[in-house]
């Protein structure tokens, strides 16, 4: 038995010495394999000889083997960390590169703009051609810009139309991820007097579980026109103009009454179904029409929030989803493709 205990001690001290001598992580892994890695290792071999011993002895020697194993493994871990740090340091030092020492890039292939960018650029261009400017704003907003200035005072029931994500800043629920691009309307009207002709594209947020039709991040484009004598007829004409321009001359639009706190009268706008040209199909639930967005005449309370006299000026606003336009245009069945960044998807467009 003492024989065996001595053996354990010898294996351990020899092992520890070899661990300390290992010059690289790879060497160390080899030593580890020989000492403790599996049935053929030195310590495992000792374990196998336990069977020859009496019960009492077996316990004692077993304890010695386990203690030795613990110490060996600890030393390996310690050494591994040391060697890895050293190797990283050596690698980092060896790999030093003079970033001013670079010969020019040679490429043959062209990349692709993201499909959402393509749709956004196309929509922007269309409105620019109609005389609009393009405005942008922050994605994290205060409650005032996202709700209150848009005719939704605190506790207004219409707030429940949006599932809002809040950020942990300031007082509870005072700062949020904008639920629509409409806060930009407020910022634009605060920064310039009418006439205003502006579209506002950007990323919006909702508290939603991702599925084929919903993402917590999505993209919207919103339009705002404020001037003397702007009418609901102008709104209907504008919607017809850009939907035909974007979806094609055979596609028409119609408005029907709806509700948004920031417009009055409010409307939803629909386009004739681009899949069946209005004949009725599964996509449009046989109605021949597809709902695209919301619109309406700017509510006098919104004008009041930004100090524009609603008796002197009137205006309209409209908004709709950029992602949805791209999905319809390109027959994309799952909105999650847009943020997966799979090159096999990106390269198609």
């Amino acid at each position: 038995m003492t024989d065996l205990v001595d053996n354990v001690a010898a294996v351990e001290s020899d092992g520890l010495a070899r661990i300390d001598a290992a010059a690289s992580v790879a060497d160390l892994r080899a030593v580890e394999q020989e000492l403790v890695g599996g049935k053929r290792s030195a310590l495992a071999a000792l374990n196998q000889r336990l069977g020859q011993l009496a019960v009492e002895e077996r316990k004692e020697v077993g304890r010695a083997i386990n203690a030795a194993r613990t110490r060996v493994e600890a030393r390996i871990a310690e050494r591994a960390e040391h060697l890895a740090a050293g190797e990283r340091e050596a690698r980092i030092a060896a790999e030093r590169l003079d970033l001013t020492e670079v010969i020019g890039r040679r490429t043959t292939a062209r990349g692709r703009r993201h499909l959402v960018t393509q749709a956004r650029d196309e929509l922007e261009d269309l409105f620019v051609a109609m005389g609009y400017q393009v405005a942008e704003g922050p994605e994290v907003e205060t409650d005032w810009y996202n709700f209150e200035a848009l005719n939704m005072p605190p506790a207004h029931p219409a707030r429940s139309m949006w599932d809002t994500l809040y950020v942990r800043l300031g007082e509870a629920e005072s700062t949020l991820l904008r639920t629509h691009t409409s806060p930009v309307q407020i910022r634009v009207m605060q920064s310039q007097p009418p006439p205003i002709h502006v579209v506002m594209p950007g990323r919006c947020y909702r508290r939603d579980t991702p599925d084929a039709r919903h993402l917590p991040v999505f993209h919207q484009i919103e339009g705002l026109v404020v001037d003397r004598g702007i009418t609901f007829g102008d709104l209907a004409g504008t919607i017809e103009a850009f939907t035909s321009a974007y979806f094609g001359p055979d596609i028409h639009s119609r408005l029907r009454p709806s509700f948004f706190p920031f417009t009055e009268p409010s409307a939803e706008f629909e386009i004739s179904c681009i899949f069946c040209q209005g004949r009725g199909c599964r996509v449009c639930s046989q109605s021949g029409w597809i709902e695209l967005g919301g619109c309406g005449m700017v509510d006098p309370n919104v004008f009041a929030a930004v100090g524009i006299d609603p008796e002197e000026y009137s205006g309209f606003a409209f908004g709709f989803g950029i992602d949805r336009c791209a999905m319809m245009r390109h027959d994309i069945d799952d909105i999650r493709h847009f943020i997966a960044n799979d090159i096999r998807f990106l390269e198609q467009f």
């Binding site: 490429t107 990349g111 960018t117 991820l177 960044n341 390269e347």
Partner: peptide, 10 residues
């Protein structure tokens, strides 16, 4: 120059 555009979640 050959790069494609990605849009990741916020």
């Amino acid at each position: 120059t050959g790069l494609s555009e990605a849009w990741a979640t916020t």
